[in-house]
Simulated assay, not measured.
Amino acid sequence: MMLNLLRPFLRDRFLHLLLITGAILMGIAPFHFADLPSAIDWHTIITLAGLMMLTKGIELSGCFDVLGMRMVKRFASERQLALFLVCAVALLSTFLTNDVALFIVVPLTLTLKKLCAIPVSRIIIFEALAVNAGSLLTPIGNPQNILLWGRSGLSFLDFTWQMTPLALVLFASLLVVCWFSFTSAPLVYQAHEKAHPWQPRLIWCSLVLYLVFLAALEQKLALWGLGVVALGFLVMARRVLTGIDWSLLAVFMVMFIDVHLLVSLPALNTLLTPLSQASQMALFASAVGLSQAISNVPATILLLNYVPPDRLLAWAVNIGGFGLLPGSLANLIALRMAGDRRIWWRFHLYSLPMLLWAALVGFGLFLIS
C-alpha cells in the first residue's frame, strides 16, 4: 500500500522540476522557512483534495464505464462520437475540475480505440481544449478559479454568472472547429461489447458526499466538508483514498511556495508592481502571456499579489490555458495519457489559433459587457 501511495511522487517529473526550481530560488531569494506554510493557499488545496476524492469515488464505481460503453454504440459517425466526447468532458469539467474530468474521459477514449477505428489522438487534443473552455464556467472547474473564487468573496452563482459569456462563446467556437475537424464516415466496430459491472452503492455515496462538500464550500466550511468526505470514504470504500494521485496536491503546494519565493525577488517585484496601475489591455495581455510561460495556475497565484481577483483577471488566466503546452496543467495531463509522441506538436496546430481567437473575442466581450 505504501508503495502505491509513493509511486506517483517518484514518477511525477513535473513535481521534481518544481522542487528543483524551489531549491534554486531558495538560494537566491530572501525568505524565512517559517513563512513557507502560510504561502500555501489552503482553501484551494482543501477544495482540490475533496474534489479528487469524490471524483475517484465516481470513477471506481464503474458508472462512467457503463454509461460510456452503452451510449457510444448509439453514434453512427466519427464526428458524432467526437462531439459527444467533447461535450461530455466539458460538462464534467464544470463540476469535477478540468484535470479530473480528463482522468475520467481520456481513459474511456483510449478504450474506444479497441472497439473501432477512430483518430484517438485528435479527439484527446479536443478534449484537452474542451476542459479549458468548460472548466472556466464555474468556481470549482479548475484550480485558478478555485483560488479566484476564494479571494473574490463572490457566491457560487455570482462567480458562474460573470464567467458565462466567455464560456459560451469559447465552447461554441470549439464545437464549430470540432465539426469540421472530424468526418461523417461511419464507425465500424471491431469487437463485441463487454460487460462492465458497476457499484450503485458507491456512486450514490459519492453523489451525496459531493452535495455535502459543495454546501460546505458555500458556507465557508471547507475543512469540515473535507473531513466528512474523507470519513465517508474511509467507512464506505477505503480504496478511494488509496487510489488517488496525491502527488497532484503536492504539485500545487510546491507551486504556491515557488511563487512566494519568486515574489520575494526584488527584480521581479520591480517588474510586476506597475501592473497595479496598468491599463486593462496591458493587464489582460500580461496575464495571458504569463500563463503561457509558467501555466495559468502559478500565473494567477503570482498576479494576485498585484491586482484584484476581478473578472478581467479571471477571464485572462483562463484564456491563457490555451496556446502553448505549459498554459494549463490539464494540457500536460491529457497529452501524457495519450501515449503518442506526435500528439505533442499536433496539439499546437489547434491550441495556438484557439488562443489567438479566445484572446481577441474575450477582450472584446469584456469591453462591451
Rank of each mutant, 00 (worst) to 15 (best):
M1V: 08
R11T: 02
F14W: 07
H16Y: 03
H16D: 06
H16F: 05
T21R: 11
A23G: 12
G27S: 11
G27W: 07
A29Q: 15
A29I: 14
F31G: 11
F33W: 10
T44I: 09
I46F: 05
I46D: 04
L48Y: 11
A49T: 11
G50S: 11
M53G: 11
T55D: 04
G57K: 10
D65R: 15
V66M: 06
A76K: 13
L83V: 04
L85M: 14
C87T: 12
C87R: 05
S93N: 09
N98H: 09
D99R: 04
F103R: 13
I104R: 03
L108S: 08
C116S: 14
A117Q: 11
I118V: 09
I118E: 04
R122T: 12
F126I: 01
A128T: 13
V131F: 06
L157T: 13
T160Y: 01
T160W: 01
L168A: 14
A172G: 09
A172L: 10
V177C: 01
C178W: 07
S181L: 06
L187F: 06
E193A: 13
W198Q: 03
Q199Y: 00
Q199V: 01
P200W: 07
R201C: 00
S206M: 09
L207T: 15
V208C: 01
L209G: 02
Y210H: 10
V212R: 05
L221Y: 00
L226N: 05
G227Q: 01
F233K: 13
M236H: 03
A237Y: 10
L241A: 10
G243N: 04
D245I: 02
M255E: 01
D258N: 15
L261R: 15
L265C: 07
Q280L: 09
L283Y: 10
A287V: 09
Q292G: 08
Q292M: 08
A293N: 02
S295R: 13
L303E: 13
F322T: 14
L324E: 04
L324I: 03
L325T: 04
I333E: 07
A334T: 10
R336C: 00
M337P: 14
W345S: 12
W345P: 01
F347E: 12
A358W: 06
A358F: 03
A359F: 04
S369P: 00
